[in-house]
Design a protein around this nucleic acid. Structure first.
Length: 570
RNA sequence: CGGGGCGUGGCGCAGUCCGGUUAGCGCGUCUGGUUUGGGACCAGAAGGCCGGAGGUUCGAAUCCUCUCGCCCCGACCA
């Protein structure tokens, strides 16, 4: 069925202006070009042209995931809460999960590990049943506290989510690698400039994960990258900073009065202590138990690193009452020596074996100096706990790190057995033993692909689609179609010719002034515009304009089809 | 959840401090006419419970209270 894509009939409501609070270029253009309309905060309707682009992206996703052996499912958004309780994720998701009010026991699924594991548990019972890659392209619901940037962060969004089932860890590695490559192919095909970073698994659990990122000021993630190839999400990024180390003098530990020093900056300023020889103490409560974290000078604690060390995300900074109860002092005078109670102390790697350090005396208004971590304190646990900073040498080759903002387009995880353990999804291995299925999960935000593409491909006039994503192959701009029968006929001829050659063509047959038509054509951004006007037509010619380059050429009416064909077969 | 801002014809906005004609402007829409290679022009017209509820007042888009919605910053985030 060929759809009538004459603009006089086809619903593409373009706009000259959008409300002032639309900030991102891609958001603005998606609204102006009639691709989407907002229905509620974080909830969008996709209009016909936007929907076509969505389907194009989905097809690219489908082709790639099919080619690595994916089998497409369509899983329900309504889920029984029971399976989520099995994995303890009702609590872990918290407010992010939508709960159905008038039907107990149903939730709206924010992701689908549980459903997949449920079906795997039913039917995948032998190592012979694996490997499997199951996937779907479907709508997710997340009660985001703050939806933003148009379609980039919504409460309802479409995700391509894939899950691998393996009987061995080697199998998982293989499936993970296949997805890595498929994801690169997908974003390359879409024409999106991206980079990959090592990432934190967060509440998803698992042992390894990587994110596919697009650099953008609108991004919500910070990434540490260097030109030589190091790339990591700031949540997990490390750097090669020299440890604090030892000084020659071997002085005895000594208390001294610091009545006006409440911060590291004060110590540095008032007592001329080098910043890196101050050991900062931060107290957190984990499961109602205090823990002291020692950091170098004004280094910042990285809570994501802390989370993976503690193995839980349920912790918080201690209150001032708790500080006094457990350490004996208020914030600003806390340290590892002379603690009031026996509590767990962990320290950043940079402080290991250091001496000549200054830290709080756990007595308001006093600090110790000449602290030797090898002599005066007994700290068994040293970890990488700091948030790295711009310019530090990367851990691979020492090239300086740049920190950039980025949008997360895709994320691949080695889940391991977290879900299969929790839900009892086991199989019989060749050795006759029952084992948990080894899983991976792999997601791409479909709307984000489109927004990021536009973010990288527009000018002041509108969108610039490439061959892969463009909603239409050609855009016929008929000038003065109302008055000129010749123009009308030429347009119709072209339109039918292109359509019957399977080239999706939109035809602007509206009775509008030329300016409106040219501007809408540039706004919609179809790669090839064919301008049909009576002046050129008098010479049997039409004008072809390439949206990307702006190049315009005159060709004979009967050559236009060939030009369009040539463009798409190149 | 904390801080800030905004809800006025389909769209974008002014008016709100300091209450008082018939609530304006641009775009769009409709009718007629003139135009036509980069968002045309003339003439006419339709279209509003000023987000909602309550209150103050002779009188409320405007002041007060409550409420709903949306945006931005922060917190949070798979």
């Amino acid at each position: 069925m060929v759809i009538d894509m004459r603009l006089s009939k086809y619903f593409i409501p373009t706009l000259k202006e959008v409300t002032a609070d639309v900030q991102m270029p891609s958001h603005k253009l998606m609204v102006r070009s009639g691709m989407v309309r907002q229905l509620a905060a974080g909830v969008f309707s996709w209009l016909p042209m936007g929907h076509i682009v969505l389907k194009k992206v989905m097809n690219i996703l489908r082709n790639e995931i099919d080619s690595i052996g994916g089998q497409e499912f369509l899983l329900p958004a309504l889920n029984p809460i029971d399976i989520w309780e099995e994995t303890n994720r009702v609590e872990a998701m918290g407010d992010v999960m939508f709960h159905i009010k008038n039907r107990d026991g149903l939730i709206l699924a924010p992701t689908h590990e549980e459903v997949i594991t449920y079906h795997a548990r039913q039917h995948v019972k032998s190592y012979r049943d694996m490997p499997m890659v199951w996937y779907q392209i479907q709508t997710k619901f997340r009660n985001e506290p703050r939806p933003k940037s148009g379609v980039l962060r919504g409460r309802q969004f479409i995700m391509k989510d894939a899950y691998s089932l393996d009987s061995s860890w080697e199998g998982l590695d293989e499936n993970y690698q296949k997805h890595y490559e498929a994801y690169c192919n997908i974003f390359n095909t879409c024409g999106i400039k991206f980079f990959v970073v090592g990432a934190s698994s967060g509440a998803m659990g698992g042992k390894q994960s990587q994110e596919f990122m697009v650099e953008s000021d609108a991004g919500e993630d910070l990434c540490a990258i260097s030109d030589s190839g190091y790339a990591a999400n700031i949540e997990v990024a490390t750097s090669k900073v020299n440890p604090v180390g030892r000084i020659a003098e071997d002085l005895a530990i000594e208390e001294f009065a610091t009545p006006n020093a409440k911060s590291i900056d004060d110590l540095v300023e008032q007592y001329h202590i080098p910043e890196h020889r101050c050991a900062k103490s931060v107290v957190y409560m984990v499961d109602d138990k205090p823990i002291i974290i020692l950091m170098r000078g004004n280094d910042e604690l990285n809570e994501n690193k802390l989370e993976s060390i503690l193995g839980t995300n349920i912790f918080r900074p201690a209150t001032s009452e708790e500080l006094i109860t457990y350490t004996g002092a208020n914030g600003g005078s806390i340290g590892p020596v002379n603690l009031k109670t026996n509590i767990r102390v962990i320290a950043d790697n940079l402080l290991k074996d250091a001496n000549g350090l200054v830290s709080g005396a756990n007595k308001d208004g006093y600090h110790y100096k000449n602290i030797d971590f090898a002599r005066d304190v007994e700290i068994k646990e040293y970890y990488d706990l700091r948030t790295i900073k711009e310019g530090e040498p990367n851990p691979m080759d020492g090239e300086p790190i740049r920190i950039v903002k980025a949008i997360e387009l895709g994320h691949i995880f080695k889940l391991g057995t977290k879900y299969s353990d929790a839900m009892g999804a086991t199989f019989l291995d060749s050795d006759g033993k029952e084992k948990p299925i080894i899983m991976g999960s792999y997601g791409i935000g479909v709307e984000r692909v489109i927004a990021c593409y536009i973010e990288q491909n527009y000018d002041k006039y509108g969108i610039k689609w490439n061959k892969e994503l463009t909603p239409f192959n050609a855009h016929i701009v008929g000038l003065n179609t109302k008055k000129s029968e010749e123009v009308r006929e030429a347009c119709e001829k072209l339109y039918n010719e292109l359509q019957s050659n399977s080239l999706d063509t939109i035809y602007d047959d509206r009775d509008d002034s030329v300016g409106v038509k040219f501007n809408d054509a540039d706004l919609l951004g179809v790669p090839i515009q064919i301008v049909v006007g009576s002046k050129n037509l008098a010479n049997g010619q039409v004008e072809i304009k390439y949206r990307e380059s702006g190049e315009k050429i005159l060709v004979g009416l009967e050559e236009a089809l060939a030009k369009v064909k040539a463009y798409y077969s190149a």
